[in-house]
Nucleic acid binder design. Structure first.
Lengths: 348, 348
DNA sequence: TCTTTTTATGTCAGCGCTGTCAATTTGATA
DNA sequence: TATCAAATTGACAGCGCTGACATAAAAAGA
């Protein structure tokens, strides 16, 4: 039933090694030979044995995607992008959920990670936020000499070691937040509010920085009471919106939430308070999750090309050498304007 | 650096085979021997080689999760459940997205599937909807003699062959829809509307059946104009809601959407039309996705224990023999009532 | 023409583990 | 105590492939 390399070799009248060369696209094979082998392999419906290859070459033909709950949509997109590249290279993707302990005690995590990576020695790891910023994880990977690519990291950890094994794919969160803020300002908003993301995610700080940079550029002033801490959840968006909208102070004319879930919270509070969005309040989010299109008005947001990032991440891991890719890749973002933002009527 | 089974064997003064027996929990090993080997293995920080094991035993220690876009949340939950079981058994999960062509032409799909499964001969496959109902996929799996488990299938395909290789995990969609409808009726609603799901998903029909069964039980009448076809998307929910709410006919006092996205569409339309939810209109969905908690009012829904289903699916695949699991497992659902449903004030 | 490279192909061991089956020990039975 | 079955352990041959190296053929110089 299942043909081996030996079968192909015999039938083609060459050695197993030559067949192996053809199958692995190694150089130094005569074109005629290559063609013949390929032909025979096809006829015999031959497919290489995964385990045998791995054993002989001490490679696993496996990439791992490590994540610690950055939201299902995000993971799925990264997955899709990565899988498509894996396919092209005859690789497969395995999933490794990782639970980084909130506080201290890295010991168990380290042991667990090492155990898993030894058992299944993948050829590369894709790290998604917040793992891409976890020094603990990076250390383990470095120690085990496993190649990794950090997706959307924010901190500049391990700058030196990165040059050895670390690759990076990122989006300029700061600039994106800057652009979105600027867009808000240019449509007439002067009284802006901002909701910050989870303190553990580096992106929170970058987005805040971008916001503030735009504020400064236009000489506006945002009191600290207008910058509220959230944690990327819908609930925290509600809480933040309450603080921002129902205080006795004048309320902002636009609120920029660091992600879509929180922005949804803002819209929901505005609805409850009878504040019309966007006529009386503009709201925008970040990430352009499907949620943006499942609310009314639909939410303006910053679109991260997450699929692309997954794609690029896997590509970096698998194409080293083939092409000459720089080890740090930036991907483009896009501002998406929907119904939740508009000109601030009162003021303009 | 990396210890082999041989190292452990020598140090423990036994043969490799005995070590192998211990590691694989095979019977017929003296307790003292077992303890000693385990001890030494630990000391040497030994971890078995994945590829070698696979090659020697012609098993892959890999399970595949096949899916065709049933929503990121769903997949992630299934994944989590399955991965947890895999871990316990020293297995890993690989992802296999499958694109079932909308119409005809199964050829390429079949070839693609076969090629993938031959290259990476997984020990079992978890099929999520709508793949769990795809005769094409089931046939390929059967032909390749690969064990599979169907998650949430609706059609009763291959009833006979199932007894050979097929396992099933399902939730009683019909009964759940019945219960939810009954709950609606019992809180006073008489004028019900229903939005059906995607015609390709068997669940659509089951949910409709459950709805109708409840309607019949209570002797209510639902005109066909009150049962609208959707496709499980937010957009289709909007369209359906428009049909249901803005026609010249009297409008229903409660709308049961076959999933949460569509229910969100209904709420959104109601908001726009100034119809208060739940005072003037009760809305409920199905699936209990995170979205239900990201809208206001929060959405009542039917909670599917998706994680459990993934867990059970993997368990069925990996525990055959160990425990005596029936090949068809049902999991419980739960009705979750939130702000979007309430007593129909006008009528009671 | 005869060497020196370069290119093309082959030989062979062995990756680390498990299946098969044989050998040995222990325990139970008569 | 002798006999037989059961439990325990070991020897050994590969699983299917590739890496390192050897060899043969072709191309390039001299």
């Amino acid at each position: 039933m299942k043909a081996t390399i030996n079968d192909v070799a015999k039938r083609a009248g060459v050695s197993m090694k030559t067949v192996s060369r053809v199958l692995n696209k190694e150089p130094n094979v005569a074109v005629t030979t290559r063609a013949r082998v390929l032909q025979i392999a096809q006829e015999l419906n031959y497919t290489p044995n995964f385990a045998a290859r791995g054993l002989a070459s001490s490679k696993s033909y496996l990439l791992a995607l490590m994540y610690d709950d950055p939201g299902p949509t995000y993971i799925m997109e990264i997955q899709s992008g990565a899988i498509d590249v894996c396919r092209e290279h005859g690789y497969h993707l395995v999933l490794e959920p990782v639970k980084v302990p909130k506080s201290g005690l890295a010991g168990p995590l380290i042991e667990d990670l090492e155990a898993r990576l030894k058992r299944l020695p993948v050829d590369g790891v894709i790290l998604t936020p917040p793992l891409s910023d976890s020094q603990i994880v990076l250390d383990v990977l470095t120690r085990l000499k496993i190649k990794y690519v950090r997706v959307g990291p924010s901190k500049n950890l391990q700058a030196i070691r990165d040059k050895e094994t670390g690759l990076t794919v990122f989006m300029d969160d700061r600039q994106a937040a800057f652009d979105m803020t600027e867009a808000l300002i240019k449509t007439g908003h002067k009284e802006l509010g901002f909701i910050q993301g989870h303190p553990d995610h580096g992106s929170s700080y970058l987005r805040l920085e971008g916001f503030q940079a735009a504020i400064n550029k236009y000489g506006l002033i945002v009191p600290t009471s207008r910058i509220v801490q959230g944690d990327y959840t819908f609930r925290s968006g509600i809480a933040a919106a309450n603080a921002l909208l129902s205080g006795s102070n004048t309320r902002p004319s636009a609120i920029f939430a660091s992600n879509d879930d929180m922005a949804a919270g803002v819209v929901s509070v505005a609805n409850r308070l009878g504040i019309n969005v966007p006529a009386e309040l503009s709201v925008c989010g970040f990430d352009d999750t499907p949620l943006t299109r499942k609310m009314s008005p639909q939410l303006s947001s910053v679109c991260q090309p997450i699929y692309e990032m997954g794609h690029m991440a896997a590509k970096l891991l698998l194409s080293r050498g083939d092409e000459n890719l720089p080890s740090v890749q930036a991907v483009d973002y896009k501002l998406i304007f929907r119904g939740s933002t508009g000109r601030y009527l009162k003021d303009v």
